[in-house]
């Protein structure tokens, strides 16, 4: 469990959270793997069914918890598996950029890319490029981040309606 290098330390390894849609960009990332296209290890991919599922809070949470950059990947315009989820993502992305600016976070720390299922090489290119961008920007200095799991059992989730109705494991 290595802690993030403190300010002034020589090497800065950006932490990047990527939200990829299941149908295009996540598949493209799989393809990059199958084709053994190596890229910067700083990208941590979280799968969503659609870029339209991307709640702006996810991006803010990522920054709050120590991400230096957030990458969003969706299907090309017109290619959304759910018809138009990617357009919603684009709208939220543009709004988020403005919000970040007002919060004093460089807007380059958030990037949206359309990557189709066949563009493994593009995943590689974008991952490397974006890592370089963030490396150049340096660490995002927000409040101290957590390093360990703080998760008392009492904080466990409220059961969902399904569980309440008796659909137990």
């Amino acid at each position: 469990m290595s802690e993030r290098p403190m300010e002034g330390e020589r090497s800065f390894e950006p932490r990047i959270v990527a939200f990829f849609c299941n149908w295009c960009t996540y598949t493209a990332a799989d393809l990059a793997g199958t084709a053994r296209m190596t890229y910067a290890p700083n990208i941590r991919i979280i799968r969503l069914m659609c870029s339209g599922r991307l709640d702006p809070q996810f991006v803010l949470a990522a920054f709050r918890h120590g991400a230096d950059g957030v990458l969003i990947g969706g299907c090309h315009p017109g290619d959304c598996h759910y018809q138009e989820g990617n357009y919603k993502a684009l709208r939220r992305y543009l709004l988020l950029k403005r919000l970040l600016r007002e919060m004093g976070i460089e807007e380059e720390r958030l990037r949206l890319e359309w990557i189709s299922a066949s563009e493994g090489d593009r995943v590689q290119k974008v991952a490397n490029e974006f890592t370089e961008t963030i490396r150049r920007l340096g660490p995002l200095r927000l409040a101290p981040r957590p390093g360990v799991i703080r998760l008392p059992v009492a904080a466990l989730p409220e059961p969902s309606p399904a569980a309440r109705e008796g659909a137990l494991p």
């Binding site: 959270v17 069914m49 759910y82």
Partner: peptide, 30 residues
């Protein structure tokens, strides 16, 4: 797709398998 879930201002719309709580944990985890 979860587009409505991402947009709900009061957190009333949710998505099975992709609950906010699950994704927040994943974000913190990575």
């Amino acid at each position: 797709c979860g587009t409505c879930v991402a947009a709900c201002p009061s957190g009333a719309a949710r998505q099975h398998l992709f609950e906010d709580a699950q994704i927040f944990q994943e974000i913190e985890g990575v």
